[in-house]
Design a binder for these strands. Structure first.
Length: 852
RNA sequence: GCGAGGAUGGCGGAAUUGGUAGACGCGCUGGAUUUAGGAUCCAGUGGGCUUUGCUCGUGCGGGUUCGAUUCCCGCUCCUCGCACCA
């Protein structure tokens, strides 16, 4: 009996079938307190799960199983973010409908997740491409539309000809599409835009109340990029009107020695003098052709004088106006007042073009005697600023804004970097917009009659007609028609109502749409009457724990919060923020690779570390070797497939290994040999359970068990899974060494192991003679009295160096400790012939004797 | 350049209201068992030395303290994010 090995290949599928058959993980609505434990749902790609997915999923699964064992209510669902480009591109290549590809990929992902034993309530599975889901995505869009938060605009967007679609700024990296690395050009197109900027203050304020990684909070803050300043109007000298600028430093107005407008600025033509027109036109043309990448990599400031001047409202000075591409049209007013003394960029520009630099802020309160060598961007005291001299930066700002407002020369203004969200794409595989437009035509546009679509009169599709389904197409290629792929589906696009012709919106929504609100649909995924039951929302929101990759720190999490706030304002949800606690699991890298400088791969055994701490060849200490783990990628060939890992070691081993690698949030390299150690641990747990007997545990073992319960419980709550596993290993090793394994201790261990290695735990629970499932067994409680020792080991130092150890009662006195310490050989030797000058005694912690 | 995080044995990592550095695991070494094993079990394992013990040691250089991986100051390197946002 005792030599029976644990066989995951047989045991794991058996318990998976059991859980499915018995609906073990169905959400229990009645139990309290309640925990909504959420994973970022995956995009079901064609390559299946990679080993990074199960990291976060295992973490949440442990927490979910732990809370169920504690008798708490748990909502732990899973679904699919299934719209997206790859399925569409695959369709273009092979003619396979994206729906078929998506369905196949979802089946693979579901199989793999079940193979890993995750305790999802599969009855709540959602799929963003399912018409019954799309219906509510469209419903939310209508809410946005009704509230004036969705509008159309002709804007210069990132058009990617290869993909045949517009990309969001964040989907363009270095002038290339994030997916596929195709060139992207700027092109004005009619787009749907969501007014996320209207929520920027609330998106900022809401961050106060959430329990998120600080780095993520900071990234969101910086992405929103709120800055307070002033808009100042500079009257033009030789032309009508004025030039308005935004500045965060109105206190430096007296130092504005020139102005700069963006090349795209509407006033360029008006400001430019005939003498300068040729040079300006050339510069504008050049700037228009520059990609974002060119602009970013340009080291030298460029620009051209327009020939025009404006008047500085505070001192009447005549300042020259330049155009330069370091001023961006998309921020502020697209024009700046340049204060070279106190802005690095302006300083650099002034140096390049020999423009005067006037110091108006000084740290000391006195103007510098020598010319400035660099811009002083900090705060200080005003100089060379007329009546304002001597004011601090803060005071100056307040005063001058008030004065500008009084004279109608400007006003206080708040700017954000956050732009409104370009929400339309020209693809097939996305949610259609529930919008249509009147059409002017004298025939049947489907049959080729001329038509004009009145895009400025969008009409909402009635709620009762949702969802607007995608038309069937067999050609998914992007066309030249910037109205999108759907424009080719004429029978779908055009329809008649009361004798008038109408045209549907042919753009589709971006992939973010479905992922913005999926956590809400999990509340009641089968509800056909409403987006979800209000009662369910009351019960489960906000999400208690949200785990997912840091790559979503800004976009997904910001967009989802925005939609949530809109739904809050619409009275649909009753909590202001969707996600309470947020954790990002770290990336799992490939195995460490040892390479020579020539790039040849080496085995770990051929490598050693030299005296300087560098890796070199074992055979030749002068040849340096690089030791590094790399991100898993197909091109590097270091991608691991969970199916292979499960086949070789079992799902429980994979789960426990991924949690044992290190802290959840850390980036860590994979090591196949280390999984073997975890597998041995699980084998020892099983072997110990098989040895369990109805005997009493001795005191030491009982104490160890209780301390393990305390440690594991605390570690699960704090998501410190690596140290929890370590503690369970210690207890297991003690059981392995014990002459008898008390059944009571084995039972405790199995219940602790359960959230980490559920299949093994179920099997062990059965072997111990209990009824399945271990999920319904009570979480073990520890007795605090058994977690403290009566006797403690106290280190004894002499002059701060360890010289011996004492076993003492935990409340032993200094006198007892001191006299016992003198008996220690190592201590006595150090004290010999010396005077005891001082005794440091921290009860139960340390005894330090200072001698001289 | 700016912001955030990090650096501990051959490797992954433990340990911070300052108190025995290296838990746990991998790897390695030796042993047991085995026809054999990349299976299992036992023991050892930070470096150095004149090895009952001494000494050095948590990226580098200082400081505070009886005592620093932990606190303070100044660096180096790595990872991630942002990058002309006025």
């Amino acid at each position: 009996m005792t030599d029976e090995r644990y066989d995951p290949a047989e045991v794991e599928p058996r318990w998976q079938a059991y859980w499915q058959e018995h609906d073990t993980f169905r959400t229990d609505e009645e139990k309290e307190p309640r925990f909504y434990i959420l994973d970022m749902f995956p995009y079901p790609s064609g390559s299946g799960l990679h080993v990074g997915h199960p990291e976060g999923y295992t973490a949440t699964d442990i927490v979910a199983r732990y809370h169920r064992a504690k008798g708490h209510g748990v909502l732990h669902p899973m679904g699919w973010d299934a719209f997206g480009l790859p399925a569409e591109q695959y369709a273009i290549k092979t003619g396979t409908h994206p729906r078929d590809t998506t369905q196949k990929n979802i089946d693979t992902f579901r199989r793999q997740l079940k193979m890993l034993g995750f305790s999802y309530d599969w009855s709540r599975e959602v799929d963003t491409t399912d018409p019954s889901y799309v219906r509510w995505t469209q419903w939310i869009f209508l809410k946005l539309f009704e509230r004036g938060l969705a509008y159309q605009n002709e804007i210069a967007v990132n058009w990617c000809p290869a993909l045949g679609t517009v990309l969001a700024n964040e989907e363009v990296v270095g002038g290339l599409s994030e997916r596929g690395q195709h060139p992207v050009v700027r092109k004005p197109l009619r787009q749907w835009v969501l007014k996320i900027t209207e929520y920027s203050d609330r998106l900022l304020a809401g961050l106060e109340g959430v329990e998120w990684p600080k780095s993520t909070e900071t990234m969101q803050r910086e992405w929103i990029g709120r800055s307070e300043g002033a808009e100042v109007h500079f009257p033009l000298v030789d032309a009508e009107g004025e030039l308005s600028v935004f500045t965060t430093r109105p206190d430096t107005l007296f130092g504005a020695t020139f102005m700069v407008v963006a090349p795209e600025h509407e006033s360029v033509a008006k400001i430019t003098t005939d003498a300068q027109r040729e040079a300006v036109t050339a510069y504008v043309a050049e700037a228009a052709n520059k990609s974002d990448l060119d602009r970013k990599t340009a080291k030298q400031k460029t620009g051209v004088f327009t020939g025009g001047y404006a008047t500085n409202p505070v001192n009447g000075a005549k300042v020259p106006i330049w155009i330069a591409d370091y001023v961006l049209m998309g921020y502020g007013t697209g024009a700046i007042m340049a204060v070279p003394a106190h802005d690095e960029r302006d300083f650099e520009f002034a140096k390049t073009f020999d423009i005067p630099i006037v110091e108006v802020v000084s740290k000391t309160g006195k103007a510098s005697s020598a010319p400035l060598e660099s811009a002083m961007a900090g705060e200080g005291v005003a100089v060379n600023s007329g009546a304002y001299d001597g004011l601090s930066t803060a005071e100056f700002k307040t005063r001058i804004i008030a004065n500008l407002e009084a004279k109608g020369q400007g006003k206080g203004r708040v700017e954000t970097k956050l732009r409104d969200w370009v929400f339309s794409r020209q693809r097939y595989w996305g949610e259609p917009f529930p919008i249509y437009f009147p059409v002017d035509t004298d025939g049947d546009p489907r049959a080729g009659a001329d038509y004009a679509i009145r895009y400025d009169e969008p009409i909402a599709v009635p709620e009762s007609e949702l969802p607007v389904r995608l038309p069937e197409l067999d050609d998914f290629r992007p066309g030249e028609d910037p109205a999108g792929v759907l424009a080719r589906a004429k029978d779908w696009r055009f329809f008649q109502q009361d004798g008038k012709w109408f045209a549907r919106e042919t753009n589709t929504m971006p992939q973010w749409a479905g992922s913005c609100w999926y956590y809400l649909r999990y509340l009641s995924p089968h509800n056909d009457e409403a987006i979800f039951d209000a009662e369910q929302a009351e019960r489960w929101l906000p999400v208690s724990l949200y785990v997912g990759g840091a790559e979503h720190a800004v976009l997904h999490l910001l967009y989802a919060r925005f939609w949530h706030m809109v739904l809050y304002d619409a009275g649909v949800v009753s909590v202001p923020e969707p996600f309470g606690k947020l954790v990002h699991q770290g990336m799992i890298l490939g195995e460490v690779e040892y390479t020579t400088q020539a790039g040849d791969k080496l085995a770990a055994a051929d490598v050693k570390k030299n005296a300087d701490g560098n890796f070199v060849l074992e055979a030749d200490g002068s040849t340096p070797v690089t030791a590094r783990a790399y991100k898993m990628s197909k091109s590097r060939g270091n991608v691991l497939n969970p199916d292979d890992v499960v086949e070789r070691f079992g799902a429980d081993s994979m789960r426990v290994y991924e949690m044992f690698m290190g802290p959840l949030e850390a980036t860590k390299p994979w090591s196949t040999s280390s999984i073997g150690g975890v597998r041995r641990f699980l084998d020892r747990v099983y072997a110990s359970v098989l040895r369990a007997e109805p005997v009493e545990a001795d005191e030491a073992l009982m104490k160890l068990a209780h301390r393990t319960i305390q440690k594991v419980t605390g570690d699960i709550e704090a998501l410190r899974f690596n140290t929890a596993i370590s503690a369970m290993m210690v207890l297991t090793n003690a059981l392995v060494r014990a002459e008898h394994v008390p059944a009571e201790i084995a039972s405790m261990l199995v219940r602790l192991v359960h959230p980490f290695a559920p299949h093994l735990a179920e099997e062990c629970w059965l072997k111990l003679g209990h009824e399945p499932s271990v999920q319904f067994a009570d979480w073990p409680e520890f007795d605090p009295a058994l977690c403290v020792d009566d006797e403690v080991e106290v280190p004894v130092q002499v002059n701060g160096k360890l010289r011996g150890k004492l076993m003492l009662a935990k409340d032993a006195s200094e006198e007892t400790a001191l006299s016992a310490a003198r008996e220690l050989g190592g201590v006595a030797r150090q004290l010999e012939g010396k005077t005891l000058r001082k005794v440091i005694w921290v009860p139960g912690r340390i005894l330090n004797l200072i001698v001289g």
